[in-house]
Design a protein around this nucleic acid. Structure first.
Lengths: 149, 149
DNA sequence: GAAATTTATTTGCAAATTACAAGTATTTAT
DNA sequence: ATAAATACTTGTAATTTGCAAATAAATTTC
């Protein structure tokens, strides 16, 4: 049987490079961490700092500062939660939403480009497989005897 | 049609976390960059600095320093190439080979764990799909109007 | 075949990123 | 009312980053 790790290493490295080089939007040159934060804020429903940091597996103190810089760039807004004033709710500004959407489009363009090298059946198969993988990974939550989060 | 980017974002983030938390070997606590360098040296045939840095998409100056620290840890060896004395060939020391192999095993263990939540058919399908993806990505070499390497 | 150009790698430096520990402010439990 | 827990921020110090410039060896040019 083929080496599983090798296949995954190659695949994730390629997507990692894509992520890293993607994307500059307008004047902004968005780093990979920033792009992931924007993505996560956009996809969660009124998330708190903790929730986003947790989803990204980022240390909360590092995250705090990254968010500060995104706020300075006017891409993210922090709103205190009235019911619990310790908590800040994160949201995208109009500009932040624009940047997030543009990155999303660029990523989807690249992915469609990749799939253009497959026939319709292969494409369906691959998409179904990614879903299966994601489901299976949810059920598997530790590696190397260290809790994953 | 489902959002391609979302699926891939989730998948690559999960593997990214795995990679990040994997693995501590013996006394060594191996960072993700170090683990990738060890992997790549192990998989290429007598690679030069440039070749490994290029494969990893790492800036050569950063790479130079990372390799220096791996040499200090006695995991990597730099051998000048006789035919071209500008070039250093990288190889793993016995200890480095051990660390690389152990990481590989831990990653494979995790991946097998993931696949244990699928039936045989699903597993075959997913593995075939990753191969298809890797082949398709080779044929697609730019994103976001920036050359990927 | 010496001088100029290119290539592979290293260092200087300054900025960005990290994470631990300790701090503030608010909420919940006792 | 006091103590403990929670959400987030700041101090600080180490690590990581990448650009520019340096070195050293090979190749090209005249």
């Amino acid at each position: 049987m083929e080496n599983l790790r090798e296949m995954f290493q190659i695949m994730t490295r390629r997507f990692g490079l894509l992520d890293k080089n993607c994307c500059s939007v307008g004047g902004f040159d968005i780093s990979i961490i920033h792009s992931h934060i924007l993505y996560e804020i956009d996809n969660q429903h009124n998330p708190s700092m903790q929730q986003v940091a947790e989803a990204l597996g980022t240390d909360i103190t590092t995250f705090s500062r990254q968010v500060q810089s995104l706020v300075k760039m006017n891409l993210v807004k922090k709103t205190p939660l009235p019911e619990d004033k310790r908590v800040y709710i994160l949201s995208l500004t109009t500009e932040g939403k624009f940047v997030a959407t543009t990155i999303d489009q660029q990523m989807n363009t690249y992915l469609n480009d990749v799939f253009s090298h497959m026939n319709e059946f292969e494409k369906e198969t691959v998409i179904r497989s990614i879903k299966l993988l994601n489901e299976a990974m949810v059920k598997t939550n530790n590696c190397c005897a260290i809790p994953l989060r």
